[in-house]
Design a protein around this nucleic acid. Sequence first.
DNA 1: TAGAAAATTAACTTGACAGTCAAAAAATGA
DNA 2: TCATTTTTTGACTGTCAAGTTAATTTTCTA
Lengths: 201, 201
Amino acid sequence: MLSLRERKAAKKKKEIIQSAVSIIGERGFHATTMEEIASKLLMTKGSVYYYFKDKQDLLYQSQKMLLEQSIHNIETIIEEKSELQEKLHKVLTLHVEYLLKERTGFEIGAKPEQLFSGDPLKEILSLRDQYSRYIDQLILKGIEAGVFQNVNVKIVRNLILGALNSVIEWYSFEGQKSKTEIADLISDYLLRILKKGSSQP
Amino acid sequence: MLSLRERKAAKKKKEIIQSAVSIIGERGFHATTMEEIASKLLMTKGSVYYYFKDKQDLLYQSQKMLLEQSIHNIETIIEEKSELQEKLHKVLTLHVEYLLKERTGFEIGAKPEQLFSGDPLKEILSLRDQYSRYIDQLILKGIEAGVFQNVNVKIVRNLILGALNSVIEWYSFEGQKSKTEIADLISDYLLRILKKGSSQP
DNA sequence: TAGAAAATTAACTTGACAGTCAAAAAATGA
DNA sequence: TCATTTTTTGACTGTCAAGTTAATTTTCTA
């Protein structure tokens, strides 16, 4: 079990990540200074460097955290026992909800190629890939089971994820609709790409 | 008519913009230096400052150019005489094709709030808005004419644009499909969100 | 072709920020 | 309580890039 000290350190790390994410999310990675990140927590830059190797490391750990949680989310739903269509609907809905919850964090990570290189980049891309493959599997199973139309799986998956991720840019807290309502509506619309119409056998 | 000198200057401006866009597109705005932009054209930084007020200005003018061309594209199609569905299909297709043609330029401009502020930001957002409104109109007309399902226009428009714009991130030149094929396929899939199925009256 | 206007250069200033480090402060625990 | 370990500090360094400018070179034109 973790000592009090270790748990305190872990908490501080999380706080620093949150501070970093919120500022970087607004201003962008390069425009954000370590001093800003620190001073938001009433700390000095030096302290931040006590917990993180460098600026890259800070960003990398925050992105890894978000992606791992996303994968955990999708795995939970996939293990549930329900109809394929309902499952995919749930996956899309949760995707939107988690995206909006961790809005700034995901905004930052949109273009990992510009943020990371080498092994960290590989790791981030591989986590994204893992997530995409889960969705591909759901679509493929749906096609095989005759629930969905026959489509180019990768293209449709990319379109769906692209549409979902864009919600970050246009969902406004001012809007009439709650996050849950929006998530549900979006998922309905996007499933139409896959659902069988009258013209198909 | 423009003098030779003016035309030369305009050409040089374009070259600088292209150089800037290609480097910024790869590395990001803040990570790109004016010296890099200049040296790609065998120039020095000072020359670039002769044509552009500052780094922001250079970026702003490149974005404005792209958006104005996009608006011109959509206006051309809207003026054509064809069925609503076909018109929207053409708009989506051309959107993808132009996006992939000017790939890096659009990649940069994805988050204008992080790049601009004040009047330039307003101008960029207003151009984007103008483009969106054209699409809204097409969808709305389609609904009114009974060609499309009744949907929340703004949400569906945002989903469609989000999906379309994501193509920048995943379309690979290695892929089997040409840009035209991809554009066509994507437009087909996305129109399914709007097309009437058998369940609707 | 000479003189003016336009364009380019290279050296310079300025400011900012990432990352370091020795010393101080705080927490721990015997 | 006091010695030891952990954490924090803030001043410092080195680097790097934006933007300026005076001097030079090129281009135009009368």
